[in-house]
Design a protein around this nucleic acid. Sequence first.
DNA 1: CTGAAAGCGCTTACAG
DNA 2: CTGAAAGCGCTTACAG
Lengths: 383, 383
Amino acid sequence: MEALRYAWFVKRTGTKTAGHTVRASTNQTGTPGPGGKRVRIQDVASFAGVSLGTVSAVLNNNGRVSTATRAHVQAAIASLGYRPDLYASNLARRHTQMLGLLVSNLQNPFFAETAQAMEDEAARHGYRISLTASNFSPEQHRAAVKQLLGARIAGLAIITSEHDDTARQLISASGIPAVFLDVGKPEENLAILRVDSRGGMKAAVKHLIQLGHRDLLFVRNSQEASGPPLLSHRLRDQGFAAAVRSCAIEGLKTNIVDVRGPGADAGEQAIASVFGRIHFTAVIAITDMVAMGVYRGLQARGVRIPREVSVVGFDNTYFSRFLNPPLTTVDVSRSDLSRLVIASLLQRKKTSQRLIHLPTSLVLRESTAAPPQQSPRKRAKKV
Amino acid sequence: MEALRYAWFVKRTGTKTAGHTVRASTNQTGTPGPGGKRVRIQDVASFAGVSLGTVSAVLNNNGRVSTATRAHVQAAIASLGYRPDLYASNLARRHTQMLGLLVSNLQNPFFAETAQAMEDEAARHGYRISLTASNFSPEQHRAAVKQLLGARIAGLAIITSEHDDTARQLISASGIPAVFLDVGKPEENLAILRVDSRGGMKAAVKHLIQLGHRDLLFVRNSQEASGPPLLSHRLRDQGFAAAVRSCAIEGLKTNIVDVRGPGADAGEQAIASVFGRIHFTAVIAITDMVAMGVYRGLQARGVRIPREVSVVGFDNTYFSRFLNPPLTTVDVSRSDLSRLVIASLLQRKKTSQRLIHLPTSLVLRESTAAPPQQSPRKRAKKV
DNA sequence: CTGAAAGCGCTTACAG
DNA sequence: CTGAAAGCGCTTACAG
């Protein structure tokens, strides 16, 4: 037994010291190890005739290596095609240069655009993004968080429409810096990013009222799953309600339609279901995707935008200005969002801002105008 | 020196065996280790009163653990909130359950939708996707591949428009199973996914010709960077050219416009630049995004689709059927693509298919119709 | 069915 | 400026 231990010991410390080697250590030869063809740091060291620690130093720019040695090692790295093992190095380092990002869905342009902006911003700081989509499911949300937490990420951004309390507690307990979109209160390691949805909604409603609209239709969608309503949607709902309240004007009438399903489908169906039954001269869509469906629903029925009905969206996705007519919508800056989130995740000091406010702004395009003078056509039956 | 070595040795093997402990090993107590608050597998083992190997066995479902012990260990895991360290386990395991995916850009719905489909399909096999965007830049492409290769991914899918030869050689040399979109020839570990762009283009051209169109405008976009043309675009170019050749019909005229920039912008500008100067009754856009810009360009000039001009897109992105009118486009199935790619990456046998064909199909919607009978309005000056 | 040992491929004090 | 040692937190033969 003692012999066995000794053999292992010798193998670990190398053969240079002695003739008491028990097993041949192929790692000293510079050839790939016995297990596979992966080039290891030791191979580079042997090849360059330096020690393993020196190679590591040049890899990590830990000064104290002469220029000549550095160049020599780098040549060895290049000629062997060496690539450091991410898992070994992160394990040894005890931390990663990886930020986790959880979004609801990549199909939705808002999330896709945000993910892209986060990746760019993270790269600017030397970090990478580990991206996961929850598909709006709290279960997938929780599973993704568990995975990310096991991956020793340096920080975690939860930019989702759905929410999961268990996941949140896990994150809180982990002590990892995190940012949540919209939901809950800040904690020691949790910052909250508050997008001013209410302000955006208010601006949209005010804009329509100032144009003379008095019959507003608010179109929203719910997820397939019978879970709780999406948080981002709830805030936009509240924003709409608050805006209507604060704008209390003689004769203002509002209706709300909710349809299950993906944005554009829901928007189209919403129009199909209320058309001819509810009177409205303006539509506020809860997202640009929904607005796109609303366009389709309206235009398929020969309704002209904005001459007969005005439409406002929310998100200012890339495509919104290419719709016909270009969509008036509420802008949420992806780059500001990314900058604020990444900055929050990366700053170590505990004194940092725990509540991050992101303003919104109404982008005026051509989908809104004054309502038609005369009572609209037959569809416009009052309710 | 020998004493020091011995101390280390004892520490590694634990204190159970003897009184010759040199330093106290806090790891045996079940409390978090001295370094931080991360719970380790040894903590779970101590807490449950079993050995570390047993905990590992229940974590990895390596049979041979009694039901009672398993339950007991799982309780310990739950009550300590233990989460295995991804880096340590992957290092020890020598492989990961991670697949790399490189796409050009997440803003483009085709890539976003494909990424989403790949994630779903990978999850079905117990794998995760490490997603990176190259932003169409060969340099970023190469850097991303290097990172992915260092991350010991189990497989790598390159679904990009751009290409980099160095990256390809690195992948080839690594021996990691990989799939490339469209480019090059299969090798030992490299499969090629060939999307039948030519077939799709041919179908589009034939469709328009059968409707009676004789003046076709092909609208394409190039990237900002002055690099080589995108591969996917080159194939679609060729498809267009081949289709026109094979359809050689009396009086068939074609023009090609190329504009630099992102899809929708390019499409809009393309129309702006040729409108009134080139005669066309149908537009074939190289992507749906470009088609969206073409819509905008046409409609801003009062041209009705399809009554005056027909438009065909390529990709069948989610939004295409919500355009007004719904876009006729060439479909590339995201789910088929994902299934084929993941299957190729995961199958170990070398005899597997190295050349994967993915058919395309023309989806007929309302953006195409017979050309106007009489010579179009003033814009329609022959060239 | 269980446990102690050997190893994964790095980094980072530490001693020279 | 360089090198040998200790450690990161796991997995997986191997011996009992």
